[in-house]
Design a protein around this nucleic acid. Structure first.
Lengths: 228, 228, 228, 228
DNA sequence: GATGAATGAGCGTTCATTCAT
DNA sequence: AATGAATGAACGCTCATTCAT
């Protein structure tokens, strides 16, 4: 038990820990940071198209021209906000496991799922506005779509496939088509995150319980108790 | 068997059948219809903010001013497109069962789920562009949010709660909190629809199989086979 | 005498008469005409780059947006002013002489030169501002340069070469290289026009006399009287 | 012969020698020189209005602010380039003949003209870009116009009048109005320079021959050989 | 002296909306 | 009813100039 927890904890550390990207932020001037912050606020409130650079400048407390010193165009400002976050969204999937041996540091799929949900909920909570912008703009920004499809999704899929098949071999996951399993799992996870953070953010959530419930649903469904 | 199918069919008919809204369309002039069609195309391609009324007019083959004869503002045009579709999205939930007795016309939750998914997939396919617009604009249009929360979600929730609890009582659904069950179910359903129609529309889908698979996951999860 | 004058007159009519381009102007709305007029004034006063579309709009008495209904960009407005004038500048050279026989309707090179100078002085006087704009912008507008070199200069050169060699054969012009003769002639003609209209427009000119003097210089130079 | 050449040479030395303006250049820092050079390039490429000081700074390899240490405004930078060149353009006319006696060091007008053209061709070749800028900006810079009219043209005219009348008295130039003679001569000279350097710089020119031809045209015109 | 970040007025251009026809 | 010319506010963006370092 102790050991398991420790292993899980460690796995979580290695695996799920986010890129802190502190180096980046440190290179930024205070002005640049406030521009980004103002842009995040404005884009997420009004949408990219309807957000005026003049409003961003005003919120950031800089002259309008200053924005364009840092970002050549409004679109470049959008990408500067959204692309790094896209990378950080999938950070847990790209972290290399340097310790070798086993690439999947969790004993059970349930433990993995739970840790993943907890971690991504935390991440999403902290990056809510940017995620909102991302969701809004992906359909209209080919650059983003490309980035998403080519760099993000492919990596995630590859990784998740490995994990899923690992647990399938162990018999923890049933023998159904991996893509369907993945889609179903991700739907459930994202469904929870969206309901939790975007649809009903003001509801009184008990995250621990809900996550456990969701993981349980994913594993065993909502069907009536099976009698032996 | 025959009987079952017939019942299901009938249930579907009664329950799931869409509002045809013919009355509305009949009152429209051809010009108005082509304006709406052009607006749907343009809004879904570029987003509401970035769509120019002049482009809509051009696509519709009318003068720029004509649009504003029918819809006082661009926003009104948006609502004219999106609000009726919102109603039709939940049509299956608001149809009253006039035949009395039983409000839930399906014998099993699985059958209900499957029928529901088939039906909504069809609906979503036919209204893809409008749904895209809807998803995009809900965050920015308070009028839409209100409509959604007050008229749509509440009705759906109420209805789905009744259904869910009906099957819970029957023992077809386990005794977990109804909201969690609903959220999980809807996540899985919508997750499939989104993947199917928006994320990977070009993938070669076998809808019947996938839907059955998804329903099975919802009911029994993805866990390994439990040995007795 | 009578005959000569008549011939000259006729030649002038056929040859030198300008394109009136009335049809074009008639198709223009009063607003478009005032935009063009205001643009001509502003471009010639401040130069193309330094001219603000807002000033043009104000001078024309229209809203700024109106300019862009007629001309998609500021540069298009420039070309709309300058390209037709370029064509009209060389109109005398492209008019075909359908009467056949002789392609050069003047008996003497001196008469031709004089008629040409009178005619082009009149044209330049009437189109002074546009010519100013043209001279200013040719170095910076590749579109103009191309038009000039490919459509204008080549036609003019070809024609002038024919004329020059015609009079050379007649012994009216000495046997020097045609390009040098042409360059020298054109320099003298344009030199007069520039001095007359741009450099010293306020000087009290006797055009008839000056033109005759200039033609005489071109033909016989400024050298002292040769004693036999 | 010897004497003649010597005299001519000396005359040329005295008369035509340019202001070297070394004193000015020596006072300049390397930075200032590179700013001027970059400004000349940029102004002549894009025109004064369309040239950005930031581009000049970049080409010069200095910070944007540095330009404004040396020249308070962009216009001042323009004048710093163009005004000294204006002076040097007319240097041949303002050199005082300190030796007294004869103010015109050439025996023949033709020799004078030829020497003048050779010399100014050389000057124009070396200062082509600046001359381009000068021609472009004179219409829009009242300061330049004034300078040109009051300091330059008047001096040149005065001097050229003296020279012309000197040769008129000698019978080398015919008895026509001096202004007309001057205008005609200058037109022909400048016409050659423009054709040579701006209109057809890539043509294969034999300068010596062309200049002699031009001088001959100026003196004797292009008329057919007069038989006695 | 030299820098370059910061400014903000002004630019060319777009577009939802109006209204005379 | 339908048009489309006209509007003008607002947009994204540029750039000459300033000034703290």
């Amino acid at each position: 038990m102790e050991k398991d927890n420790a292993a899980e904890q460690q796995g979580q550390e290695q695996w799920i820990q986010e890129l802190l990207a502190l180096s980046e932020k440190e290179q930024m001037t205070p002005k640049q940071i406030s521009i980004l912050q103002a842009a995040i606020d404005t884009f997420s409130e009004k949408g990219f198209s309807a957000a005026a650079t003049s409003e961003i400048a005003q919120k950031a407390g800089v002259a309008e021209g200053t924005i364009f010193r840092y970002y050549k165009t409004k679109k470049e400002l959008l990408l500067a906000i959204v692309v790094p976050t896209m990378s950080r969204m999938i950070a847990p999937f790209v972290m290399r496991n340097f310790s070798g041996v086993l690439d999947v540091p969790f004993e059970s799929y349930e433990a993995f799922l739970k840790a993943f949900m907890v971690n991504r909920l935390d991440f999403a909570r902290k990056n809510l506005k940017i995620i909102r912008i991302l969701i809004q703009e992906i359909p209209f920004q080919p650059a983003l779509r490309e980035q998403l499809v080519e760099n993000i999704l492919s990596q995630v899929l590859e990784r998740v496939t490995v994990i899923t098949e690992h647990f399938k071999e162990q018999g923890q996951i049933m023998d159904a088509p991996t893509p369907a399993i993945i889609r179903f799992t991700i739907s459930s996870v994202i469904g929870y995150l969206l309901a939790r953070l975007l649809l009903m953010p003001d509801h009184d959530w008990n995250d621990e319980e809900e996550i456990e419930q969701t993981v349980s649903f994913i594993m065993h469904g909502i069907g009536g108790v099976r009698t032996l």
